[in-house]
Write a protein that binds this DNA or RNA. Sequence first.
DNA 1: GTCTATAGAAAGATAGAC
DNA 2: GTCTATCTTTCTATAGAC
Lengths: 188, 188
Amino acid sequence: MRYSRQQKSMTRSRILASAGRLFAARGFAATSIDDIMCDCELTRGGFYAHFSSKSELYCEAMGRQPLGAPTPVDDVEAVLNACLNPERLAFFATDVASGEPGVRMAYAGAFKNLSARLRDCARRSTHCSEESALSATAMIVGALAVAHTTDDTDLRRNLLRSCREHAKVLLEGGGFSAPLLFWAPGAE
Amino acid sequence: MRYSRQQKSMTRSRILASAGRLFAARGFAATSIDDIMCDCELTRGGFYAHFSSKSELYCEAMGRQPLGAPTPVDDVEAVLNACLNPERLAFFATDVASGEPGVRMAYAGAFKNLSARLRDCARRSTHCSEESALSATAMIVGALAVAHTTDDTDLRRNLLRSCREHAKVLLEGGGFSAPLLFWAPGAE
DNA sequence: GTCTATAGAAAGATAGAC
DNA sequence: GTCTATCTTTCTATAGAC
């Protein structure tokens, strides 16, 4: 054959990389297949040799994002840094709210995954309730969403930094549930 | 004239209400003008007697959302309840990330408004840093975004409840900044 | 496997009747 | 002010050359 298997695999990866970047920046509906293919310097027509539809591409690309993909990292701070980074990407809930069932489930799954992973990381050193993990994950999602929105670099930096810190305390500080209001310094 | 001024104003309000609901549920790009006009039982053509473009409608509709609109409410819990309610709406950052400058600024302004308002409310009773307010606001945005995503009612309820609680503590508990790690019970 | 060309559908916006 | 009809653009997806 004229194109090797390796070459096809590389092209596929390039499409996935471009899709990840553009979907995260603009959202599903606002990103066209043409945008994606142009981004990796290919043309529309070639797309369907790799994916059967835009939705299928979205599902697969989302699975490779920090929010969805399992990583070898296993401490809270490292995971937070990996997620809450302006260079990193995020997929947005709007895309999914009215999407197909498969896409909806993929997103909810990615959210639960991140939440569970953060909780597992935190529990190596301290108690962390499911609720604290959910709240911290929501904070991450919101911070990424807003950070993508604004050109105000000060706001973006402040937001990401403070969310990184607060998420860390929320996870490793044992959360803010009522019992912890009685936590005393040094008691840890 | 065949249509009174009052009637026009009411139609305009109906369009804004439908737009608010649909934009929040599906996102900007995934919601068509036809969807909105059908929702309030009108037809496409009439739209442009009220708004000059879809973007203009979006900006104005966002200004009326809990996230953007100032309300008379002035304590933290009430504002949180108003925002973190599954019946309430939220506009999503994805819509704005690649939008026109006016839309981008409107969204960033709405975020800053909510953040500042929450901080003001909190400061009536306790210290609240700008960073804490930003983090709490991000948590709200993320919680709403994810809540809209999933059909899992347990996840949605848990998420909204825990974010409501954690945001409250983050705001009124003085946040989680380093100094507060030395906060002792009863010292308030 | 990737290209160009194009079919078919959807959506933003306008024109003109009433 | 609201309607129907339509123009124009954009986009997904397919067909066929290479």
